[in-house]
């Protein structure tokens, strides 16, 4: 549908990636744990390795739940598709884009 306006109506997204420099926003969703009311949003360098992302960002957050076990073998997904994170690979190279959602369960 064409937007009906008086005058030109073009504005940049207020959440666009360039506002975060070399970083981006990544959502992390613990799918089968209802304690977390929603997925979490994090700002992370695109070049950050998965291992660092996991240790510096995901684990501290998930530990809000005292039952979280970082050594547990979770299944992972990216935007609803099965996903196999490689610890040494950067988030960008893993195909994780700005505001995309990484999920885990099991």
């Amino acid at each position: 549908m064409a937007l009906k306006t008086i005058g030109t109506y073009e504005f940049p997204s207020r959440s666009r990636q360039e506002l975060y420099g070399e970083d981006m926003l990544v959502h992390v969703w613990w799918k089968d744990n209802p304690m977390f009311c929603a997925a979490a949003t994090f700002r992370a360098p695109q070049a950050m390795s998965w291992a660092d992302f996991r240790a510096a960002i995901v684990d501290p957050w998930a530990s809000s739940d005292p039952d979280y076990d970082a050594s547990h073998d979770f299944s992972w997904g990216l935007d609803g598709q099965p996903f196999t994170p490689e610890p040494g690979t950067s988030l960008a190279d893993l195909g994780i884009g700005h505001k995309h959602t990484v999920s885990f369960w099991g």
Binding site: A38, T41, W61, S64
Partner: peptide, 18 residues
């Protein structure tokens, strides 16, 4: 229990995606 982070928000209603 608190959610020690920031939630994913809906772009339209802006409520955490719950």
């Amino acid at each position: 229990f608190f959610f020690m982070g920031l939630p994913q928000l809906c772009q339209v209603c802006q409520i955490p995606m719950t």
